[in-house]
Amino acid sequence: MIEEINHLNEEQLHKKILLKKGFMAALPIVLGYFPIAITYGVLAAQAGISLIELTAMSILVYAGAAQFMGVSMITVGAGSLEIIIATFVLNFRHFVMSLSFANRTRGLQAKWKVPLSLGLTDESFSIASLHTKEAEQTNGGYFYAALIISAYASWVIGSFLGGMLGDVIPATLSQSMGIALYAMFIGLLIPSVKKEIRYGYVAGLAMIFNYIFSYTFSIDQGWSIVCSTLLASLIGVFIIRGKTM
């Protein structure tokens, strides 16, 4: 009896630890999303979108770049269908990311998979896919849930506050915070490259492809990221051949 209670407590404790770990891992995203979400709220309100609508967009769409694009297209009077198609193109990269994430977290319980996949963004995908050992643990879903919900909350709350209060962050500061998510991507990439230089070659290739696609061929940002990611990682299979993954 007592042993059983101890076991239960242990499991509760383990879940709590995983939740806390997930939240800590999300902290850079929370920090990075917040000022961008406020800016989105401000711009959307200026475009004449109501507070409820702009917050609903953050809750239901939850894709930063697409929401900024949506707002600017609404401002210039673009058609609804045009906006929806452009959103699809811009966000199609999440299909590729979700495919990779689902492949890396096959051990995760089925009930977690769909809700977690709905919260995948560039940022939560990057952090989640560099933490794959949590997926092997019992209750590993708690880690990813805490990670994804923290980021989501930051985005939704920030959008709402931006729409309601307007510019609460001084312009210079919010402009400076524009580098936060890039710095986070760098902070995630470098430790992996230090462990395995070939991951660095893959990332470098993706940068070159993305540069060429977006500048030389002026391909849409969405397709450019999808194509350069797929191409660089495909070449990466040959670069990394022979090494057990």
């Binding site: 990269r93 590729v96 990311m97 495919l99 990779s100 560039d122 995908f125 990057s126 896919s129 560099l130 991507f185 995630l188 990439l189 992996s192 991951y199 660095g200 893959v202 990332a203 470098g204 290739l205 993706a206 940068m207 492809f209 993305n210 450019s224 990221i225 350069s228 990611t229 797929l230 660089a232 990682s233 990466g236 299979v237 990394i240």
Partner: peptide, 9 residues
């Protein structure tokens, strides 16, 4: 390998 390529892009 996609996460590393995605980070680069």
């Amino acid at each position: 390998i996609i996460p590393y390529a995605a980070l680069g892009a």
